[in-house]
């Protein structure tokens, strides 16, 4: 049986789905369910990772310290993970305190062409003896050759694996196969895949990643994540079981965690809504859907036009401020007509 490492990102990517308003109670009951299911890694935090609570990408209800404290208290066998984006989070303000709060796994992320900004954070986390992965976000925006070059940088900095994120839900299975198989062949460290469901492909793409040589796959209970959500964890585990992969996760435990998520965390089960589909087609970060909808309404413009214009401009994750500029521009253009 081939082994896979599944990362449960419900309490991190899911925070996008509720504008980063997850409460202590929600973190606590879900972390308990994840521990009971034997999830190897449980990621927690603001949707954009530690140090990201901001007007730009949304202010979280709880501080990083509170989120880590609550989840730490519930995890025993499961390892606690954080997402870290240099440019948002600094070592002194954010990473060092998170390590002191008992984080086990640190996933350091950058836009897929900018891996060199992760060097200091990866090096620091490794020096602290932590399990460290590199993450290339919005990886649909670069060729497989560029992704390999960037992933090699992360490997050289000390990353123990590199995860390709399909942050816009723009991948089709062929893209997954091309990119994951090249990285799996060429890197000396494991490769991972993180799916979004904008075009309904998240579970299928995650399976394709595993079949193409990925060792790490990310999933969220009930798909609770940004935009159309992530690969639905409990469905993914069922599929992987059918394909003969071993994840170490208890199927009933995962199904129970899914029920806990639906009952306690999920306001609306994520689905591929009109704006999410367009976000995937335009290749724009899934987490833009909430601010795009809000700002488009305010300026009386079509959110789908806003997404396509953002895609045309090549806007990357973390650039939510540009939504306002684009909406104003489209509304002015409409007024001139």
């Amino acid at each position: 049986m081939k082994e896979l490492l599944v990362t449960d990102i419900t309490l991190r990517d899911g925070n996008h789905a509720v504008a980063h308003q997850l409460t202590e109670h929600q973190l606590s009951v879900y972390a308990e369910a994840a521990e009971a299911a034997g999830m190897p890694i449980v990621e927690v935090g603001h949707g954009n990772g530690i140090g990201a609570s901001s007007m730009q990408v949304g202010e979280s209800l709880l501080s990083d310290a509170d989120m880590l404290r609550v989840v730490r208290g519930k995890l025993k066998k499961s390892r606690m993970s954080i997402h870290v984006i240099p440019g948002f989070a600094t070592i002194n303000k954010d990473l060092r305190p998170a390590i002191e709060a008992g984080v086990d796994v640190i996933r350091v992320a950058s836009h897929c062409t900018e891996a060199d900004i992760t060097e200091r954070h990866i090096t620091f986390a490794r020096e602290q003896g932590k399990e460290v992965y590199g993450v290339l976000m919005m990886s649909h925006m670069a060729s497989k050759e560029v992704l390999l070059e960037e992933a090699r940088k992360m490997e050289q900095y000390g990353a123990e694996g590199v995860v390709l994120m399909d942050s816009a839900g723009a991948y089709l299975p062929k893209d997954v196969r091309d990119k994951i198989s090249l990285l799996a062949e060429e890197l000396n460290i494991p490769v991972g895949f993180h799916a979004h469901n904008n075009m309904g492909m998240a579970v299928a793409n995650s399976l394709t990643a595993a079949e193409s040589g990925a060792y790490i796959v990310d999933g969220a209970s009930r798909g609770f994540g940004a935009g159309a959500g992530n690969a639905q964890l409990e469905a993914l585990i069922a599929v992987l079981e059918r394909y003969g992969y071993s994840t170490g996760i208890d199927l009933y435990g995962a199904l129970d965690a899914g029920d806990v998520a639906q009952r306690e965390l999920v306001e609306v089960v994520p689905s591929a809504t009109s704006t999410s589909i367009v976000s995937g087609m335009a290749g724009v970060f899934s987490a833009f859907s909430k601010p795009v909808e809000r700002i488009s309404k305010e300026y009386g413009v079509d959110p789908r036009d806003v997404f396509f214009e953002l895609g045309r401009r090549g806007i990357v994750a973390g650039q939510e401020d540009i939504i306002l500029e684009v909406a104003q521009q489209l509304s002015e253009e409409a007024a001139k007509k």
Binding site: S54, E114, I315
Partner: peptide, 10 residues
């Protein structure tokens, strides 16, 4: 708070 985004668009 200060945030910096690098954008690789051509």
């Amino acid at each position: 708070k200060a945030i910096l985004n690098l954008n690789p668009a051509q």
